[in-house]
Computed example of a mutant assay.
Amino acid sequence: MPISFTKFAAVGATVMTLATANAATAQTHDIIIFDEAFFPAVIYVKAGDELSFVNNANAARTVSGGNGSWTSGTLQNGESYRHTVEAGAQVTFIGASEGDNPVSYSGEVSFDPAPLSN
């Protein structure tokens, strides 16, 4: 039995509503890169959220997934990098300086509810 145009349009509208709702609920989490730390050091996310790293360190820094699956490349002071979190993503990210005495530090992505979020 062929589907009617009305039913087809209703299904299409439902799919579009769900897709828009998911996009509308995604959040951007700002993370400041300092000389030897991230702020905040733990980010509470949902799949689809975006991490926005901003280099506030005195020198160039890179940020990458703990497993090497993504990297910002070199970020000069004031530059930023955005990364979208996928379900089941790596739960750590690494910051590193460049030069003769490199400094390395880490932050964490958590899919748990944020403390005090109620």
Rank of each mutant, 00 (worst) to 15 (best):
I3Y: 09
S4R: 08
T6F: 07
K7G: 09
G12Q: 13
T14F: 15
V15G: 02
M16G: 14
M16L: 15
M16N: 10
L18K: 04
A21W: 14
T25N: 11
T25I: 10
T28V: 13
T28S: 09
D30W: 07
I33E: 00
A37K: 12
F39V: 12
P40L: 00
V42A: 05
V42F: 02
G48K: 06
G48L: 05
G48Y: 06
L51G: 02
S52V: 10
F53N: 04
F53I: 03
V54R: 13
V54M: 09
N55L: 00
A57D: 01
A60L: 07
A60P: 05
T62R: 11
S64K: 15
G66S: 05
G66R: 05
T71P: 10
T71H: 13
S72R: 10
G73Y: 08
T74D: 07
L75W: 03
L75F: 04
N77C: 01
N77G: 00
G78E: 00
E79K: 13
S80T: 02
V85R: 08
E86H: 12
A87C: 02
F93H: 03
F93T: 00
I94Q: 09
A96R: 15
S97P: 01
S97L: 01
S97C: 03
S110P: 03
P115T: 03
